[in-house]
Design a protein around this nucleic acid. Structure first.
Lengths: 193, 193
DNA sequence: TTAATTTTGGAACGTTCATTTCAAATAAAT
DNA sequence: ATTTATTTGAAATGAACGTTCCAAAATTAA
């Protein structure tokens, strides 16, 4: 009996994400989101509750997109170190592709909103934990097959890589030269070899 | 003849910086700044023009503070590698000291505002260039006195260190455990040895 | 003390903000 | 075709935004 939702939620979230990614959470206005999605204000509020919740859903979509990409990389990779390398290269491609140099939505969110809102903070901590766990696992495997040295524990290297990724995303905001960034990755990863 | 300015501009800028640092540029309201400084709205506009310009002055004060600290470190340091180490340790102390875990004002600004406003962008690029130049110089000296390896050029290592610092500041927003962060610094710098 | 100049206080400016409201349009199921 | 539930459009809400304004207070030099 009801009129069903006509718009594609995923498309709308991608459009909204683009606004948040470009402007940041606070500078993105509801009008910007209405314009970008083509939806009516009411429809946005009907479907997503409020701006804050819409942003949270955008974060999740963004996170899932990368988790899927990384899962695919891991399937293809024949060696843990190569897997780590290809994760960095994934971000490298992202930086080079993005003409606006927006950086990482999640890193930007962390910088703008961490330790202010508990919902956001939970998301960020969750994201951090799972990234650290992924790296720890990969480093562990790498040390077992001797592609990664044993100078540091997997936990230590995981934090090192997590930090390097964040730094990489920050650097990519003002430097998008592929050669320079590729060299930066090499420098970062030579530490593990 | 004129009534002279009664307030201390430096104190006011530090108070304003604290607001911007805690909330970010966009989430910091003029009312927040009025409350934090104890100044009247008019006085703020008289002395600093507008919010944007006040923020820019805060950025400069923040930058100068670190430049002074680093200059002092360089004078004391007896070895380029140790100097680099003490720069990282300066930020470590900053992170541990800061109970709000606000991160770096400049890094946060980059994440929030880069590639949107040309004045801000110029500041950020300038800050980047001078940081890169400092590191390049130190690495160069380190390679000459053999405390730093020659696996990479000074320019490469400078970008590596600049990126590491940004990542370090980002990581410090959600992790403020001194041991963990100290270990992270060691991991980061072992790459140069 | 008077004159000159600036800082203040506080209200007011017009705009934009996120959010709400509600009647009209819509579309599926009966 | 009618019922039922939802989405839509567009206006309205009230609060908050950055900024301006101006008379009153304050301070120093003459």
């Amino acid at each position: 009996m009801p009129k069903t939702e006509v718009f594609n939620k995923e498309i709308v979230l991608n459009q909204a994400s683009h606004v948040f990614h470009t402007k940041g959470y606070n500078a993105a206005s509801m009008q910007d989101l209405v314009d970008a999605t083509g939806l009516n204000r009411s429809s946005i509020y009907n479907s997503f509750g409020n701006k804050h919740n819409l942003f949270l859903e955008c974060l999740k979509v963004y996170q899932n997109k990368y988790q899927r990409s990384i899962s695919n990389l891991l399937l293809k990779a024949n060696c843990p170190l190569k897997a780590i390398e290809s994760i960095f290269e994934l971000y490298l491609e992202e930086i080079v592709k993005d003409n606006d140099n927006k950086g990482c939505l999640i890193t930007n969110c962390k910088s703008e909103m961490a330790n202010q809102d508990s919902t956001i903070n939970n998301f960020l901590i969750n994201n951090q934990e799972s990234t650290l766990a992924l790296f720890e696992d990969l480093v562990n495997q790498g040390q077992e097959n001797s592609s990664i040295n044993r100078n540091r524990t997997p936990k230590d290297y995981a934090l090192y890589l997590f930090t390097a990724i964040q730094g990489f995303r920050m650097t990519g905001i003002l430097i998008d030269n592929k050669q320079q960034l590729q060299s930066l990755i090499n420098t970062t990863l030579q530490n593990l070899k």
